Simulated scan of single mutants.
Amino acid sequence: MTGRRMGPPDASIRFKLLDASERVIARDGYPAVTSRSVGAEAGVDQKLVYYYFRNMEELVVATFQRRSETFLARLAELAVAQSPVKTFWELSSHRSGRLMIEFMAMATHTPTLREEVARYSEEATGIVETMLANHLSNARPESATFSPAFTSFLVASLARNFILESELKLLRNPHEIEQSIEALLDVLCR
């Protein structure tokens, strides 16, 4: 299929398809991402998916790349946040964090997406760990109890588990757990 005509990368319909792909992933999970579901969500013929993307994998990777670029830009803003650890938590535990969980699940089956997730993760981790190294040393210079790498892992892991268990209604008292997490973040910010 090399040499086939492809739609322009800056076309409004291409952006509609990316938006639709993101909504389908967020709402229905990665198994629901098909040309039919994305086309229907975008309000266009499903054949247009293959006019703008060579295959569904390319669509998913492009959707991830767009989302990860936005997230990286927001992470870069953490360096100037009043409370970067809490801001990192809010960013990680936001509903859009659900998308990252779905992308990670898809990456286990999609080598191209796996490479893109690894590239993004490396860049995001660098931003977060640098920010945390500066913040933690300023906040508690006498204590190196939690390294930037561990703090980043802790906050991101708590966020992913909180999102999943909340959605699955596995938490008896999500408000109480969220308050406990906030208390832990307060300790980290001292």
Score class of each variant (00 low, 15 high):
residue 6 M to G: 06
residue 6 M to W: 06
residue 8 P to T: 13
residue 8 P to R: 15
residue 11 A to Q: 06
residue 14 R to F: 04
residue 18 L to D: 03
residue 18 L to Y: 02
residue 19 D to L: 00
residue 19 D to P: 00
residue 22 E to Y: 05
residue 28 D to Q: 14
residue 28 D to S: 14
residue 32 A to Y: 04
residue 35 S to A: 15
residue 37 S to G: 06
residue 37 S to Q: 11
residue 41 E to R: 03
residue 43 G to F: 06
residue 43 G to V: 11
residue 43 G to Q: 12
residue 44 V to S: 03
residue 46 Q to V: 02
residue 47 K to Q: 12
residue 59 L to K: 05
residue 61 V to K: 09
residue 62 A to C: 07
residue 63 T to V: 13
residue 64 F to S: 10
residue 64 F to L: 14
residue 68 S to G: 08
residue 68 S to R: 09
residue 68 S to K: 07
residue 69 E to P: 01
residue 74 R to P: 00
residue 80 V to G: 00
residue 81 A to E: 07
residue 82 Q to C: 01
residue 82 Q to R: 06
residue 85 V to F: 01
residue 87 T to I: 08
residue 88 F to S: 05
residue 90 E to N: 11
residue 98 R to T: 10
residue 99 L to I: 12
residue 100 M to N: 07
residue 106 M to K: 15
residue 109 H to F: 13
residue 110 T to D: 09
residue 110 T to V: 13
residue 111 P to C: 10
residue 112 T to I: 00
residue 113 L to F: 04
residue 115 E to C: 05
residue 119 R to I: 12
residue 120 Y to D: 10
residue 122 E to A: 11
residue 122 E to V: 11
residue 125 T to D: 12
residue 128 V to Y: 00
residue 128 V to L: 01
residue 130 T to D: 14
residue 131 M to Q: 02
residue 132 L to G: 03
residue 134 N to R: 10
residue 135 H to P: 01
residue 135 H to C: 02
residue 141 P to T: 09
residue 142 E to G: 14
residue 145 T to S: 14
residue 147 S to V: 14
residue 152 S to Q: 11
residue 153 F to E: 14
residue 158 L to R: 05
residue 164 L to I: 13
residue 168 L to A: 14
residue 174 P to K: 12
residue 175 H to W: 12
residue 180 S to F: 07
residue 181 I to V: 05
residue 188 L to K: 02
residue 188 L to P: 03
residue 190 R to D: 14
